[in-house]
Design a protein around this nucleic acid. Sequence first.
RNA 1: GGUCGGUUUGCCGAGUGGCUAGGCGCUGGUCUGCAAAACCAGUUACAGCGGUUCGAAUCCGCUACCGACCUCCA
Length: 489
Amino acid sequence: MKNSLHIYNTLSRKKEHFEPWQPPFVGLYACGPTVYGNAHLGHARQAVTFDVLYRYLTHLDYKVRYVRNITDVGHLENDADEGEDKILKKARLEKLEPMEVVQQYMNAYHRNMQELNVLPPSIEPRASGHIIEQQQLVKKIIDTGYAYETNGSVYFDVLKFNEKYAYGKLSGRKIDELLGNTRTLEGQSEKRNPIDFALWKKADSSHIMKWPSEWSEGYPGWHLECSTMSLKYLGENIDIHGGGLDLLFPHHECEIAQNVAGSGKEGVKYWMHNNMITIKGQKMGRSLDNFITLDELFEKGHRLVSRTFDPMVIRFFILQAHYRSTLDFSEDALSASEKGLQRLQDALFILDNLQASSKGVVNAEELNEKCIRAMNDDLNTPVLISHLFDGVKTINSVQEKRISIDQENLDHLKDIYNTYVHSILGINPFVKDSSTTGISDKLIESILQLRQKAKQRNDWDTADEIRNTLQKMGISIKDKKDGVDWEFM
RNA sequence: GGUCGGUUUGCCGAGUGGCUAGGCGCUGGUCUGCAAAACCAGUUACAGCGGUUCGAAUCCGCUACCGACCUCCA
């Protein structure tokens, strides 16, 4: 059961049984962000998706090396590789050193990831730190005859590559169609063919991010870094390579071509792609100007939401949809997730304090098997969560003494929830304390004692007044049969 | 225009050829000084048309609509 993980391979467009090249070792590479702006919901989805994969593989006792890169150079602005480097452009706009831009957004990205409880990868390589390795790969590809130099720039020869290998097999594209669809830009191109892509670009005089090479002072093409760094840290046989669906073409297609041209091997066994987050059915993206950054969602606010949300709510929201489906963002949908998560968290708290009986009707193993099945089926977290909610009903019913549970099943149940909620889904408990409000817990409790006394002498006016006052201060009161609960809202 | 994908109950969102995912919302109930919260229960949908089948939301075909990629994007 444990080793029957199936994952959807973009290459075959089918779910396949996961078998690493060399068990128990697993090499996992995921395309990280280009750090020229704040991380948005799309970055969160990518990170959470592969974080859960990383966690689950680890849970299955694989020895995982997880590499997630930071793109901090060489990402061109637009078509035909004639554009401007994204980071450079941002640096000019903000009057900063390019590496200052990189550092600033990389720090912010790391902070957001931590807030989302995304584990740091085993290695987080940066493109700028692997210029020499990238040049070596360019050389190799030139040596094998699949790249050519023009005016100090080096381009990948897609047509020549396609004579021997199939270019477009990952994204299902045909060379003829690509050729037919390519926009012919005005002016002379250094490329032999419009679909060729840059491996090395000569920098013009205004370009500050540049490195010496045997071809020119320049910088590496975008697709090159992932081939280079995955090769360096995971070798020629990589088990899983992932990223957002929008990277499928051309980015990942080009990577495969580079891998094959450079090493003779495709390199990657399973390609995995997470789908996009949409707003009103439209993809959320930087260029569409409809994206919401994580900072805005967590604390700053955004015109599309009337309030902020706890990062765990975002994480849970993402996990309530399958990673290969689009997920439509709205405040209503987020609020629904927030309530659901709260119910789950409450049940976990109850579970911790549950009493076992000598006999019980609860079968924890049944639940466990359902959970395993869901995860093994291409990381079906929404189905996993639905099973966990079924268990919430069970937990509540035991607490209300409608049904009973024996010690063995209770222990097992605790273990299941700890494993799936905390270890695999990566959901942290809500932390609500007085540190942000400056109100002391003991102060509140003594006020509540006064209210209890008022209640005992049927002084409802006073009791309600205290409740209303505390309410205004952001403290909610929940009267219960035995005593009173309170919490910061 | 090409390629690929989607259309599920008020909303988000799973899913399998027959056995009513789940969350939110809503309705009812329990609890309660009142309220809130919490809990329990109910809430049987699968774009349209045709086909295959004993049986299809699930397979096939057509139509409509939506989207992604084809240019930077997670």
